[in-house]
Design a protein around this nucleic acid. Structure first.
Length: 380
RNA sequence: GUGGGUGUAGCUCAGUUGGUUAGAGCACCAGGUUGUGGCCCUGGGGGUCGAGGGUUCGAAUCCCUUCACUCACC
């Protein structure tokens, strides 16, 4: 099913190295080398849209042992402004985070803020969601923004479309994404910055293949799989990941954008994905949904009002080490800021530990069993 | 004591000239949340319409009595 792909380790100071490949699936461990440190893969990148992982600061993230976070070109360019960030030492200096940063281009905002935009081949015209002023985006400008932000890994402007969509529209978005990638690659960036290509193609296997085959012709150090988890069936998403990872080169990292649930991460890894990001652990933390190995805990539920146990026995996070479900329930119910912070600490800890467990399972040759167990115990 | 006002879901209130099974917002109970606004979405439980009597085919709605709260004046 997953084939027996070739491993071609690149020696020396290459951007990415595959370390261990699973025998029965496409899962592999590796390391992404950046000028802000090494990142063991498969990795989950906490989302810090506005130069902060909401409720946490850089020292929190260091304590949680995060090696890389994700931020956003669109949001940071509007506020506080990428030139200001550049003056203040880039995102790293600004937020005092000296580990790796990946920035998303704002391509997803073209999609999610669709009512505010006008799009043609030249680029995108937005109305700022802050003050309504008009901003024009081109692929070149988006690279310039990310150069100012100083991220280690940057995404080109792409076109992510709503599903379901006609074959024609998917194809048009796919072609435009490729043209925009070519323009992005011509725009200067710092030597230490790496620009990924993004594969589109909706939920059409043939268009996905075409997008992947075209994209890998470009000189990119890694490839992203975009346009998924936007309302399609879960089975379709997994199938698209299968289709694409079969084509992407083994020696370069694959990044599945915006995904996903703990089970999605395992399923993605099984298909050869190395990098993930998702708002789910942080957003759900703020909405009272907490991840544990058995599934999810909705801390709002009244059954936790008198529950003296920690969220999850053995969890290393502050919320679990020190506080009870009853206390977390209370804090959430009375809308205390601390609830959001403790919940976020827990969910990020869970996600980072989850990826660590995945890496260990691969290293020990037990990923297959790990995958099987995850499928049995997790439904989403 | 006299005169006026108000009593409808836990809270704040809609409810047409009397007309199906009395509604909304918030709260409560429970789901959802996938390249981020603590937002938002979807369900659910909950009412002797202050109480009693009357008119009527039919009353939250009209009439009488009564109770509670409230305002003004003694």
């Amino acid at each position: 099913m997953w084939g027996e792909g070739k491993v071609r380790n690149v020696m020396g100071t290459s951007f990415f190295e595959v370390e261990k490949r699973d025998a029965r699936t496409n899962a592999r461990t590796g390391v992404v080398h950046t000028s802000h440190g090494d990142v063991p893969t498969p990795v989950f990148m906490p989302v810090g849209t506005h130069a902060t992982v909401k409720t946490l600061d850089a020292s929190d993230l260091e304590e949680l042992d995060a090696k890389i976070i994700l931020s956003n070109a669109y949001h940071n360019a509007l506020r506080p402004g990428d030139e200001l960030v550049n003056d203040l030492g880039g995102l790293h200096g600004f937020m005092k985070w000296d580990r790796a940063i990946l920035t998303d281009s704002g391509g997803f905002q073209v999609f999610s803020l669709a009512s505010l935009r006008r799009l043609d081949d030249q680029g995108v015209t937005f109305r700022s969601h802050w003050d309504g002023s008009e901003v024009v985006w081109t692929p070149e400008k988006v690279v310039r923004i990310q150069r100012n932000l100083g991220s280690d890994i940057m995404m080109p402007l792409d076109q992510c479309i709503e599903l379901p969509a006609s074959e024609d529209r998917v194809e048009e978005a796919l072609e435009r994404t490729l043209r925009w990638l070519d323009r992005s690659l011509k725009e200067p960036r710092k030597e230490t910055q790496h620009l990924f290509g993004i594969v589109q193609g909706g939920i059409s296997p043939s268009l996905r293949r075409r997008s992947a085959e075209e994209t890998i012709q470009r000189d990119c150090p890694g490839f992203s799989i975009g346009g998924l988890s936007v309302g399609e069936e879960k089975s379709a998403m997994y199938e698209m990941v299968d289709v694409v990872t079969e084509i992407l080169p083994q020696e370069k990292p694959r990044y599945l954008m915006g995904v996903g649930t703990p089970l999605d991460l395992v399923e993605g890894v099984a298909r050869g994905v190395d990098m993930f990001d998702c708002v789910m652990p942080t957003r759900n933390a703020r909405n009272g949904t907490l991840f544990v190995h058995e599934g999810k805990i909705n801390i709002k539920r009244s059954e936790y009002r008198n529950d003296d146990r920690p969220l999850e026995e053995g969890c290393s996070c502050l919320a679990c080490r020190r506080y009870s479900r009853a206390y977390l329930h209370h804090l959430f119910r009375v809308n205390e800021i601390l609830a959001l912070r403790l919940n976020t600490l827990h969910n990020i800890t869970f996600y980072l530990n989850w990826m660590r467990e995945i890496r260990e399972a691969i290293c020990e040759g037990e990923f297959d069993a790990f995958l099987k167990k995850a499928r049995e115990s997790l439904t989403t």
